[in-house]
Amino acid sequence: MTAQPSRCRVCKAPAVIDLPRHNANFCAEHLVQLCSRQMAKAIEDWEMFTPDDRLLVAVSGGKDSLAVWDMLIEAGYRADGLYLGLGIGEYSDDSGGYVRRFAASRGLKLITIDLRDDYGYDVPTAAVATRRVPCSACGLSKRHLFDRAAIEGGYDAVVTGHNLDDEAAVLFGNTLRWEIDYLGRQLPVLPAANGFPRKCKPLVRLTEREMAAYCLIRGIDYVVEECPIAAGNRHLGYKEALNEIERRSPGAKAAFYLNFLNKMSPLLAEHTASARGDVGSCAGCGAPTTGDVCAFCRLVEKSSTHEAVPVEIVLDTRIRR
């Protein structure tokens, strides 16, 4: 016989999750309610968007992006999905399957871009061809193509599934190196400017443990396995360090990040405004850039002419390092 000792803080039904940062337990129904309310508060506090806006959600097949898409639709927003095929072996094949099944089961519009089919390269090849860290080549491709799809599709904002843990880890890394420019731009919403679309992160008040629980409760099937290339990267090391702090001091991650937004970001705003360089148009694709040719076009030029690199080669290289 199994015991079920803890009870939901709201309704006293058997709890399914304990959240030490809230010093409370929640049942399935009220965990979903908590997530929805925290997302709504983020959208309202930072004036991200309104129900009249058309949103483009960047979906990867992971828990956060599928959860935010689900929560936005449930809340009545108009949101289409954009999936980017990264060419990371079986991981990408699996991820794409989760996204397509999610969209099809809910009758949602999904736009798909495939790096290999549409641009002649994939992330493993780009990493070798440009000698970039794979996550850097991946991030550059995502940012550029999400921006372009939003502008060309007439969307009012790009929405990503970055959660509290993601943002706290980025903040931790930028603070360790006192990257003032990056710190100044680390906001839950970046307004449309200089040819870039508005970018919003509605999940910044929610942890990844809460998002994983949300998906389980809502029956959202997502790719649980970690990206094989990202495994062991510096970002994940920061998350591990912050989780150890959180274990000793529940609520520390939220305090670190949300107090940064409330207390530090306003102080950095002046610096960020003065540091903004002149932005022109890329000679290759017309995207906004501070140079003659944007970083994405330079990456495509090097990567699309390079022999295709299997993901196993990149993994072997990382293991040997």
Binding site: D64, V133, P134, G139, H162, V170, L216, V224, C227, K239
Partner: peptide
């Protein structure tokens, strides 16, 4: 036992 941590650098 389901891990919840994900993500490369952003």
């Amino acid at each position: 036992v389901r891990p919840v941590v994900s993500g490369g650098s952003t």
